[in-house]
Design a protein around this nucleic acid. Structure first.
Lengths: 206, 206, 206, 206
DNA sequence: TATGAATGAGGGTTCATTCAT
DNA sequence: AATGAATGAACCCTCATTCAT
């Protein structure tokens, strides 16, 4: 009974969340009006405030969702025995998959979360550093295992990896390209991975 | 006489322009108030409207300045006989140098121009495509001359190159890192270039 | 059975009433939210509307309670054979006692009922005039019996009496002073009474 | 030149101030809308914010004006050699005169400043205590000079004096009575003073 | 050129009240 | 009786832009 009510609450909260994603994607955070979000969600104006304290809070929830999911993946990879290539592949796939499932969320990450220094609180900056550190950990592991060249700092290779990934995704985001299905997703992921892996591979001949 | 007046006009216009850069960097375009910009420029806020039609126009001028300068460089490179490595080095150096001379402008490019789909008019999207096409032309030239591997599409290599470059610069922008002088600038530029060139180089042995 | 239900109803109604007193005291009528009152009463806020038509009505009930009790006293005094001094003492004691039993109600009388012209409907103004007339009646009786001087209009002496009383109580209300028990209450009451009586007494020597 | 501009500014500020007094008197602070005040002042909505930071600030200015004027009087009395009766007369006259010149300000003092614990910041509470202390100083002086009885604490006599005064004024405020001119003002002042002085006078026969 | 007073549309937020369950 | 989701009018405040001087 209580469960059902909670479920209903979650459903409506999710509806507002999704509506917010769409509106923010289309108009940007600053130009997104609470009234737009309400209309998009098919509810009355005031109800948004029943579920979210205010506009800022709504945005925080979106950002937190993003980071929670991403850090969930990174935690998983940390404990994994998979090959370094596979780990990086998972990261790439995660971005592509998120873009596939929710282009709006990906868009907001690219346009509002990852760049706008206006929205960048110190808490958020920590998220960034944390994500980059986790990625660098994988790169370092690759260097230690002789998979990646060691004449460049792991930090630099990390920049290249994430920069390349972001460039691909950004381009798709800006051009509003659709990913049609898993095969295409896999193909793109492999391309990115191979390009990077080849570029960063340890070229010492045994 | 006319010259002098124009010069005076240019001077004040430049002062407003610079003030706008600083304010927009700090507060973001949406939160930047015309009154902030006027105060920063040391003039009354009504006067801003003598030099710029409105806030949007002011932003356009900033964006246009960015693109005009960048396309100036790209046109130069197109007519140049320099080695592909040198051309890419010039592009990298351009970003670093701009960041060095005007961190504000670089910041605005990263946070407001390059990502915000809100500010992205179709005209602006063309600028992006144009810049990417010019870069791709250099990469293609590299492939044709046997400098870069050809088993990846030039477009993909372009993503990697620009993505890497942007990642480096973005990190500096977000972390508010200062570039101390030309030597450091050169060192960073060479690192980026070498990383990319090594990653993309044609590995065929003759 | 019916009785029990009514009793239950009264109990909950009283709980809401008391909660309203506390909240209105703390936040003032305008800033007091129905949800605050409900939370303070430990019920859902929809339920408040089962017992009170709306916020205005809730306030009316509070004000009416105040006036009903006060007029109850005044009616009692009218039929009484007690000495004028005793009657005035009863009035003073009533205010102090109300303050002792329910500082919130006294506070609301002082801050919301007795002064705010915003809350002052014509019906409420009549209550005021009525109370003042009843008090004046006692003063007049005192003049007729030779207890009070007659060279001042009874109306003026009434102002002094009620004004003094209110000043004492207001000060306690604003300073949030507690009355510890009956002895203290009696002492304060006697002070006020004596001060006024001495001031107003008929100074003719026989 | 600059003087003129400042003068113009003061004039408009005063117009808004007066409009605010009227609106707040009529509707109370909470129900007074900034739009009402603007319309009452005959200016546009936003202009109010040119002169006052916000609604709270506008109210603060009103309250400060009240206290500044009142404390001006009290400071004057402190340095004066006038008879105690005269000093108290000045206080009474001050309230009546203020009511005469600006019934709205007096009304706001009675209904919003002097009672509403909602509006009562600690700074404001200090104002109250200060005013009461200054009044008590006069009463004490009267006791020391043998003018007032000493068998009651000066604090109690102060309550009576101020309470009586406030009761008179409140009644006029609530009943919206007009004071027609100086003669009437003087007559009322004398009545209040005489009533209090007679009540508080030292009754010892030499 | 230069100033800053003046305008008013726009949008975030609050909260009394209703109503389905 | 009881809950709290749902509604939407109301109101404060911001700030781009205009305009008289």
């Amino acid at each position: 009974m209580k469960r059902d009510l909670d479920a209903v609450k979650k459903v409506k909260e999710g509806a507002i969340f999704d509506a917010a994603l769409r509106v923010i994607k289309q108009r940007g955070f600053h130009k997104a009006r609470m009234s737009d979000i309400a209309r998009e969600a098919g509810i009355s104006y005031g109800l948004v405030y029943h579920y979210f304290a205010n506009k800022e809070d709504l945005f925080d929830v979106i950002a937190n969702r993003w980071w929670a999911d991403l850090f969930g993946l990174m935690a998983e990879l940390k404990d994994s025995d998979a090959h370094v290539h596979q780990k990086l592949g998972r990261v790439i796939f995660y971005f592509l998959d998120t873009y596939h499932r929710s282009p709006e969320l990906m868009n907001i990450f690219i346009t509002e979360i990852s760049r706008s220094s206006t929205n960048l609180t110190s808490a958020r900056l920590e998220d960034f550093k944390g994500f980059m550190a986790e990625t660098e950990r994988i790169i370092t592991e690759g260097q230690e295992k002789g998979v990646f060249r060691t004449d460049f700092k792991a930090r630099y290779l990390t920049y290249i990896f994430l920069g390349s990934l972001e460039a691909f995704v950004s381009t798709m985001v800006l051009a509003d390209q659709k990913i049609k299905g898993d095969p295409q997703k896999r193909r793109i992921a492999e391309s990115i991975l191979e390009v990077f892996v080849n570029g960063a591979r340890n070229q010492q001949r045994s």
